[in-house]
């Protein structure tokens, strides 16, 4: 007797960034399950000139994604202030009216509003919510009905595994992209140099505060007048954020916060799948359509390979080469997932 056909193994969902409509289309065409985007204002953490979506492009993007079986998520992942609450509230209403598949929210007040005003709207807890324990995630689930939580990039694999085992909520983890300093949702570092914080204004380094200048000593990047780094001819500049700055500390020049590196967790995929990770997030709404196309293509193939046969999964050199070609910095890291000193 022939064996019954086995159901196709379910790959972890691939959540890809889109800062522009062409990026959204390329993400969908190359196999993203979810595409996340933002409005053209400070309600999202990639509030940069010329980036993001107006209502018309979101409607078109949702239509395009749905026709091809993908979903569109809207990031409302910054924090309203007492004087700006209505703007964030209106952004939730706008996302719901546009028919997005979910909103990714960080602020508890905004989650409460969304849950009450739009009970049908699917809620994801943003990485900026900084919920690192199953107790915190379960709290958000019980009070606001969140369906998915994005884990902050501070947990080791073992810690993430424990969280997943103890929560009823889908867990999404970061798989690839630029790393920011590990106090997501709580970082105010750039406000010391620019007067603006990423969590309220939507950008770590507001473009108006950035200066790139060629000097006799090299290419200098400054933020709000503060020298972030100076690059020689052979150096590779990164994004000019304070957390990636190279500073003189007690006479030594080094990166006191973190080196400019990219997260790349391809080699962890079998482990992440086995422990029940529901979705893998790719960072980079500020990046070009070429970046989105390349990363989505590689990760789709990798996730499908892993779903087919976790035991035999091997990272292909071609994948690593493609990802290395578009990474920030020239180092890739497993970030906090791998913590030998723990």
């Amino acid at each position: 007797m022939n064996a019954l056909p086995q159901p196709a193994p379910r790959a972890m969902k691939l959540v890809c960034p889109a800062g522009t409509p062409p990026a959204l289309k390329l993400a969908v065409d190359n196999g993203a399950d979810d595409v996340y985007l933002g409005f053209k204002d400070e309600t999202n953490a990639r509030n940069f000139a010329g980036l993001n979506f107006d209502d018309k492009s979101i409607r078109e993007g949702i239509g395009y994604a749905h026709r091809k079986g993908a979903q569109v998520l809207v990031a409302l992942n910054t924090y309203p202030q007492p004087g700006t609450w209505r703007k964030w509230q209106a952004a939730v209403d706008r996302a719901a009216d546009l028919g997005v598949d979910a909103v990714i929210v960080a602020d508890a007040g905004l989650l409460a509003y969304a849950a009450k005003a739009h009970p049908q709207l699917r809620l994801h807890l943003s990485v900026q919510g900084s919920a690192t324990s199953h107790e915190a995630i379960t709290f958000y689930h019980e009070h606001f009905g969140i369906r998915r939580a994005v884990l902050p990039r501070v947990l080791s694999v073992e810690q993430a595994e424990k969280v997943i085992a103890r929560t009823p909520v889908e867990i999404e983890v970061f798989g690839f992209g630029s790393l920011s300093i590990m106090v997501e949702g709580r970082c105010a570092l750039s406000s010391y140099a620019t007067g603006e914080s990423p969590n309220t204004h939507g950008g770590c380094s507001p473009a108006k505060a950035i200066r790139w200048q060629q000097s006799p000593r090299g290419l200098e990047s400054r933020l709000g007048g503060v020298l972030i780094d100076r690059f020689g001819e052979e150096d590779h500049p990164g994004y000019p954020t304070l957390c990636r700055g190279r500073f003189v500390v007690n006479g030594d020049t080094y990166y006191p916060f973190e080196e400019p590196t990219s997260l790349n967790t391809l080699e962890l995929l079998p482990r992440l799948q086995a422990m029940g990770v529901a979705a893998i997030k790719i960072e980079g709404r500020q990046r070009s359509p070429v970046y989105v196309e390349t990363v989505t293509r590689v990760w789709r193939e990798a996730l499908d390979d892993c779903a087919r046969d976790r035991e035999r999964f091997r990272v292909k050199p071609a994948w690593q080469a493609a990802l290395a070609g578009i990474s920030e910095g020239h180092q890739c890291t497993l970030g906090a997932y791998h913590r030998p000193w723990k």
Partner: peptide, 10 residues
């Protein structure tokens, strides 16, 4: 080509 990558690579 990706503009940020060209920028990172000078």
């Amino acid at each position: 080509a990706d503009p940020d990558t060209l920028f990172f690579n000078r």
